[in-house]
């Protein structure tokens, strides 16, 4: 069954895959962070809150707002950037250098890190490998991505 992106179902599927692949994430170590995902187009935004604890993704939920003082950071980007990243993950079995979360956020062009407290923002770096491998799990999903247009924008249904 195809899993649409963006959707809560998509993140729940990643959560389930992470639980199934516990040994892989146990090897990477504790991951204790709560962060937001914000996917935007010109006319709407999808927002999800992901809570990681010990070796698993404990909770995913859709939220209407983020309180940056209560969470560690928010990964924000255009739907097109997210789609490109997931497409890349699907093609390569995991993000390549140009599409890793670190690369996409580093120059703040495709994805941006929003935060209130730089200490909490630094958790993005502290748990980098776990967070990246969490998203890389998407390669095992049959994801229904919005279609890209030639201009790089996306068409959602």
């Amino acid at each position: 069954m195809k899993i649409p992106f963006p959707s809560l179902t998509f993140f729940q599927a990643l959560q389930a895959l992470m639980r199934q692949d516990e040994a892989r994430f146990r090897r990477l170590g504790f991951v204790d962070t709560t962060f937001g995902i914000r996917i935007v187009t010109t006319d709407r935004a999808w927002q999800y809150l992901l809570t990681f604890e010990v070796f698993e993704c404990r909770e995913v939920r859709e939220v209407s707002t983020f309180d940056l003082t209560a969470i560690d950071f928010v990964l924000q980007g255009d739907l097109a950037a997210w789609v490109e990243m997931l497409d890349n993950i699907r093609q390569h079995g995991g993000a390549d250098v140009s599409h890793s979360l670190n690369t996409l956020t580093h120059f703040g062009e495709r994805l941006t890190l929003l935060y209130d407290d730089p200490d909490n923002r630094d958790k993005f770096f502290r748990f980098q490998e776990s967070i990246q491998e969490f998203f890389d799990l998407a390669s095992a999903l049959d994801v229904e991505l919005p279609m890209s247009t030639a201009a790089g924008a996306v068409v959602t249904t």
């Binding site: 890793s100 670190n102 630094d122 958790k123 770096f125 502290r126 748990f127 980098q128 490998e129 990246q132």
Partner: peptide, 9 residues
């Protein structure tokens, strides 16, 4: 990426 995690600690 692995070195980054250590430096962040």
């Amino acid at each position: 990426r692995l070195a980054m995690q250590d430096a962040a600690r």
